[in-house]
């Protein structure tokens, strides 16, 4: 059984880099150092500082911000964010995988066209798109109107400003980020392989679960990464479609820099959030590598 190889595990034939290998990698490493490591480093320093009246950083050392981060309330909020992100990812795999696969099996010209059509809706403004969803889901909205006139329901469903609306919004926003990587990976699968499975007597379900899915696992893994990771920090959708009744970790961090004017605490939250991600990611990678051996 093949395990999910996280993107990034070097190929078995990978070799030691020569001068060129290092030289070509240098710009990316430099970019990451300059625009990710250094700014994050600045914030890490801030997280040990105190603040003044304006919320500005005062350079005097304290652990307080980190003590506060581990207050159960913030862990609870982080848990909720992860849960929403997880649910979104699962639904996106279930909904998006077949689409990615289907598009990959079309003739070449149609493929690119369909791929673009998946993404084009998202070239509208986020806010306008979300307000369109509000018009669909509100009590006197399109969906309730349709269902009422079809006689499927007798009273309008309360959808907007509930967790259901939030999940619809999140799945909508992240679905393309599942479909596209799955497509990238499925497009490579040789039709002959699929046919061979059929010829050997595998039914469509068995061919799918034993041949197709394993072959496209890298695409699924990439999609999971691209949906799950950004979804944890998302809060605009929960605010607009969920009525901002529950805080997400993204809200909490943003509030420290805006409303609460406590940059050091916001920085500490950011640092801890980042470190949690790093350790989880490294652990998954390590586990993946071990089980591959």
């Amino acid at each position: 059984m093949q395990t999910i190889g996280l993107p990034g595990t070097a190929a078995p034939h990978a070799r030691k880099p020569g001068l060129w290998g290092w030289l070509l990698l240098a710009p990316m490493v430099l970019w990451l150092l300059l625009f990710v490591v250094v700014p994050t480093g600045i914030l890490a320093v801030y997280s040990f500082c105190q603040r003044d009246d304006l919320g500005r950083v005062v350079f005097s050392f304290t652990w307080d911000n980190y003590v506060r981060v581990f207050d159960p309330i913030y862990l609870n909020i982080l848990g909720r964010s992860v849960a929403y992100a997880g649910l979104t990812t699962i639904i996106c795999v279930a909904v998006g995988y077949p689409v990615g696969w289907y598009i990959a099996r079309r003739p070449a010209g149609l493929r690119n066209l369909l791929l673009l059509l998946v993404m084009i809706p998202f070239w509208t403004s986020f806010l306008i798109r979300t307000y369109a969803w509000i018009a669909i889901l509100k009590n006197e909205g399109l969906l309730n109107g349709l269902l009422l006139s079809a006689g499927a329901i007798t009273a309008p469903l309360e959808l907007l400003y509930t967790p259901v609306a939030v999940v619809i919004g999140l799945v909508y926003a992240y679905l393309p980020f599942m479909i596209l990587p799955v497509y990238g990976s499925a497009e490579k699968v040789d039709n002959a392989l699929v046919e061979a499975a059929h010829d050997l007597g595998a039914g469509p379900v068995r061919a799918f679960s034993e041949v197709i899915i394993p072959l496209t696992l890298p695409g699924i893994a990439a999609g999971v990464l691209l949906v799950f990771v950004p979804a944890i920090g998302m809060f605009a959708i929960t605010d607009l479609m969920g009525g901002a009744r529950v805080p997400m970790i993204g809200n909490v961090i943003q509030n420290q820099f805006f409303k609460a004017r406590n940059w050091p605490f916001g920085a500490a939250l950011g640092v801890v959030f980042t470190l949690m991600f790093v350790f989880t990611y490294l652990a998954v990678q390590w586990h993946g590598r071990r089980s591959q051996r």
């Binding site: 990451l32 490591v37 994050t40 990464l225 691209l226 950004p230 920090g233 950011g270 991600f277 790093v278």
Partner: peptide, 17 residues
């Protein structure tokens, strides 16, 4: 592997940070 992790950090980092 560290590089791979580093690459993914901007994806999860809250926009405000």
């Amino acid at each position: 592997r560290s590089l791979q992790t580093l690459i993914c950090i901007p994806m999860m980092m809250p926009e405000i940070v």
